[in-house]
Design a protein around this nucleic acid. Structure first.
Lengths: 348, 348
DNA sequence: GGACGTATTGTGAGCGCTAACAATTCGCGC
DNA sequence: GCGCGAATTGTTAGCGCTCACAATACGTCC
């Protein structure tokens, strides 16, 4: 780090300083075996002295590899997408890849297409698309891109390689848990219709009821937000005493709103109405009361997605058929069982 | 998109097909003015036909620009970092840059240094480091890197260009609000000591009290988590009736835990104890009761950070002196004023 | 001591693009 | 019909690296 010149030093500069050829420098940097220790030391010293760093673009051009993956996501401040994003980056890093992200406010054919173009121009070797909206799924299948794409959260129906948590199973776990606790019927506050996850959770809920030979009650819709949950909760409160004793809410944020609306209406949870959520956001354990919910293993989603994408990039796996499914897990807390876990009892 | 060959088509291929020189193709792609319309059309047609896409690495090598920025962050599943990340990417995209992210579990000198190295190898032209831990700040100042770095959340003390929300002001707003509401003293549940933001909030809290000629009560510490807030809340509950009527909690998640502990202890909020938080996470409005808190404008943080970083990259601004400060905003809800906003009244 | 195999180092040719400059074409006035 | 400037197109060098191959050095064995 002695000299500071306008142009950063090149491999040739280092080679000259070390008295070797540029190729030998390349070998040292590439950890090739056939370099004499003495030579290696000489080269490393020169590199250190000059503060040399290998030029990314030149390397990428020569090797035809950028070692960069792209991720397209939306709603990245929500717990689920943020966790998935984190897991993806960590998994990619473990495989020696860098991740370029494009975060969309809204996921439409246009924004998705634009995002893929951008990433393409940015030289990514493949893309993971966190695309829970159904519209996005179709777009993904149709759009042309010069690299493989793995979808996350699209459900397994699309003709695109994808990785998903089994939402249907999660919904059945939650609903089944409420039925097993003795509730005759279980209501459902669903997410937006154009979200595949919302659809799958509705299906799972319905399946669990039908299996128990119960007629599904009226379906309520929210938009994932606490506010929409609050409004639905006010409506639900009107059904207390008329057969409503248990609600399965499609995510924890809406469940928070439901809990609040019920409380305001003088309805006790879980004594009068039991409430279960979905996602297990970190706050759920501290809701009033602590929320029974379904936990998704985002770390595994990230790892499997990257693994699948790299398989596709290396041509190890035929595109189009690969579908990975991951099991969610029921977390039972006081909102469905008064005598169960209090905060602090479960790991924070 | 007619032919599918092993090697993707190059600019020379397109040129041949269009019957022009590769440089003309380059001009068309670069939107140069001096190209005849007819020629441009010919070239565009060839590009379309062959599904040609400009090679990122070659372009970057020739121009010496990757148009990629790096971001180092930690705790990216928390609302604050996630929001900042989102804002940064959006701002960078608006300026024509792609963002590569490295998300750390823990921010230490080693992990930070490693992250910068990775990003450097990834060819970024500059880096934004979301580094709220004080240890990270020192590391940033010392580490050598061949590109400019802008710090976010480090406070303005470090010798590094940085962008910060004025945490001290935010704490004074919250504390002052409680004092103005008639509380004699205001307690404080602080964040971890090694977070600059926690320190600044403590300072602001103290300043507001001193200005009102009030002796600061005992300081409590948490780790930002709801669980730590819950435990602190249990302790606080013991002080009710002995001078405790108001608590300023250093973030909303801990405030959630405090609210829960107080409720369990039979302490009413805000009638017995008023509680204010910090961050304004989306859930705050639906806590029981809705939480008074301090909102940070992450979108502005993102925009200003990217603007500063690009200034540094272009050499428009001398490094080392630039400090940007952004004002936070008090959001008053029912946890400090019983007759104030109910959920649904404020925008969702 | 010479031949042969192996470890080590060097050389030359791209990778696919842009920048600088050279060459050509075109339009127009006289 | 010629000359000139502007518009348009082509040519030539790299950008800094890796890959394939050539060259050299070093041992070892008979």
């Amino acid at each position: 780090m002695t000299r500071s010149q306008l142009r950063p030093p090149t491999m040739a500069d280092v080679a000259r300083q070390a008295g070797v050829s540029h190729q030998t420098v390349s070998r040292v940097l590439g950890d090739h075996p056939n370099v004499r220790d003495e030579t290696r030391a000489k080269v490393l010293r020169a590199i250190e002295e000059m503060g040399y760093r290998r030029n990314f673009s030149a390397r990428a051009l020569a090797t035809r590899r950028t070692r960069t993956l792209g991720v397209v996501a939306s709603n990245t401040t929500l717990y689920g997408p943020a966790s998935t994003l984190f897991a993806l980056e960590e998994a990619a890093r473990a495989e020696g890849y860098l991740v370029s992200t494009v975060s969309l406010r809204r996921l439409t054919v246009e924004t998705l297409s634009e995002a893929l173009d951008r990433l393409s121009e940015g030289g990514v070797e493949g893309v993971v698309a966190i695309a829970p909206q159904r519209s996005a799924v179709e777009a993904l299948a149709e759009l042309r891109h010069p690299f493989p794409v793995v979808a996350v959260g699209t459900g397994s129906g699309a003709g695109v390689p994808s990785v998903n948590v089994d939402q249907n199973l999660g919904a059945r776990l939650a609903t089944g848990h409420l039925l097993a606790a003795g509730h005759r019927r279980v209501w459902h506050l669903a997410g937006p219709e154009d979200w595949q996850e919302a659809v799958d959770r509705v299906d799972g809920w319905r399946a669990a009821l039908e299996e128990a030979d119960v007629e599904p009650p009226m379906l309520l819709r929210g938009d994932w937000s606490p506010l929409s949950g609050y409004r639905a909760g006010q409506e639900l409160a009107g059904w207390v005493g008329r057969g409503l004793t248990a609600v399965f809410v499609a995510n924890d944020q809406m469940a928070l709103g439901v809990l609040r609306a019920l409380r305001e209406a003088g309805v006790r949870t879980p004594q009068d109405v039991a409430v279960a959520g979905f996602d297990d956001i970190p706050e759920s354990e501290f809701f009033a009361p602590p929320l029974t919910t379904v936990r998704q293993d985002f770390a595994t989603v990230g790892k499997r997605s990257i693994a699948l994408l790299l398989d596709l990039i290396e041509g190890r796996t035929p595109s189009g058929t690969s579908q990975v499914s991951i099991e969610p897990q029921l977390v039972v807390r006081a909102s469905t069982f008064p005598y169960l876990p209090q905060p602090g009892a479960a790991p924070g």
